[in-house]
């Protein structure tokens, strides 16, 4: 890892990582590739069903509510707020990673804590959205939403995929928050200070950004398209 990167270095002749990263970080990347395929498979299955369907609900009609705003028609506003929270928590995460590179324990604690707060806020928003949709009759196997062309719903594919994919993403956010809390405890205990580097923060950071990345695609596929 400490090898200076020079243009004509022989990466594959042994003696150092040909990827110039530690084993742990490389394995996190490999895990994220496999996870990307899992999410990709789910989203492509959703796309296939949508291409097969004669009609599909209009996201601007389905997702139009905001907490405490009653029946106000506010398409996209709530999910935009959720997107903003997740992007913001990605920023605080990368600031924590950056502080770790400079062995600045106090800043790592500050930014990692904000990241955890952001993750919990996102999960709270998602819980509210699920509860709201459940109240209006949507759940796995139940689709109350008429199609965009005005016809009655013909299948439950829309809600099945919505709850499965956002649920799987929410599960990732949950485990990300748990990992962040574990790492925060270790930071506070001085584990990484003694180890001499904050690479563990980088590794959970990669995972956290991946969760944000998946949300970017979920946001487009379910709320925009």
């Amino acid at each position: 890892m400490d090898n200076a990167v020079t243009a004509n270095k022989k990466w594959w002749s042994g003696g150092s990582s040909p990827f110039n990263v530690s084993y742990g970080k490389l394995m996190m990347w490999y895990f994220l590739i496999s996870d990307a395929f899992t999410f990709g498979a789910l989203l492509i299955a959703y796309g296939t069903q949508r291409f097969m369907a004669e009609a599909w609900p209009d996201p601007n009609v389905v997702f139009h509510s905001f907490p405490f705003m009653g029946h106000a028609d506010l398409p996209l506003v709530f999910v935009s707020l959720m997107t903003f929270i997740l992007i913001m928590s990605s920023v605080t995460m990368v600031l924590a990673v950056n502080a770790g590179k400079y062995m600045d324990k106090q800043s790592v604690v500050k930014w990692l804590s904000w990241t955890i707060v952001g993750g919990i806020m996102f999960l709270g928003c998602q819980a509210w959205e699920w509860m709201h949709l459940h109240e209006v009759g949507a759940w796995w196997g139940q689709n109350p939403f008429p199609n965009a062309d005005g016809t009655a719903p013909i299948s439950t594919n829309f809600t099945d995929f919505f709850f499965t994919i956002t649920g799987f993403h929410g599960l990732h956010v949950t485990s990300g928050v748990i990992l962040n809390i574990i790492v925060l405890v270790n930071v506070l205990k001085g584990t990484y200070e003694r180890r001499g580097h904050y690479e563990m923060v980088e590794k959970v950071g990669l995972y956290w950004h991946f969760v944000d990345l998946v949300w970017v695609f979920v946001f487009t596929c379910f709320y925009l398209l």
């Binding site: 990167v5 990466w11 990827f19 990263v21 990605s90 920023v91 950071g205 950004h209 944000d212 990345l213």
Partner: peptide
């Protein structure tokens, strides 16, 4: 575009070596 910026900047992939 958003995916590119998250991966290249936040995940730092844009600053890693070509092999990776």
């Amino acid at each position: 575009v958003k995916a590119f910026y998250i991966v290249a900047e936040f995940m730092h992939l844009g600053h890693e070596i070509k092999n990776l």
